[in-house]
Design a protein around this nucleic acid. Structure first.
Length: 136
DNA sequence: GCCAACGTTGGC
DNA sequence: GCCAACGTTGGC
């Protein structure tokens, strides 16, 4: 499956993930986002989106470890997954590109702007790859 | 820095 | 269980 996660670069950006080699995606405190975390499988590919600054998809991460208890809280409601960087996009795909592409109007990124972890359909994934200049 | 959108909380 | 109030996120 395919996913998209957002992060503010000033808090935790793509460069930081590359530097760290791996990170646990903690701090998710939203039930919808949490449910998506729980549905992630090892090896799933995850678009890495920069919110606020940049406002673009900059790279692809992969799920390295499936969900487990969020170590930053004792509340059993919350979980994290481990992500590792997979590849940086040749060309970042900006929010405005996505918003102007007729084929991507149904994307959660457009419709549910505030959701921090969201699923991406295979169709959408292919379009993003095309916009990013990736030929896979 | 403002404000719209949305989720959550809490009073009834 | 409804809904108003409030807080947070994120685009602009």
């Amino acid at each position: 499956m395919y996913w998209l996660v957002k992060s503010e670069p000033s808090v935790y950006g793509w460069e930081q993930l590359v530097k760290d080699k791996k990170t646990s995606w903690d701090g998710v405190r939203n039930y919808a986002a949490r449910n998506h975390l729980k549905a992630m499988k090892k090896g799933d590919e995850v678009l890495f989106y920069h919110s606020n600054e940049g406002m673009e998809i900059v790279g692809i991460a992969k799920v390295d470890k499936e969900f487990y208890q969020d170590p930053t809280t004792d509340d059993a409601n919350w979980v994290v997954v481990d992500l590792k960087p997979h590849k940086k996009l040749k060309k970042p795909v900006t929010l405005s590109q996505i918003k102007t592409d007729k084929r991507l109007q149904e994307m959660a990124l457009v419709r549910l702007g505030r959701l921090s972890v969201q699923p991406v359909t295979e169709k959408e994934w292919k379009i993003i790859m095309e916009l990013a200049g990736e030929n896979s």
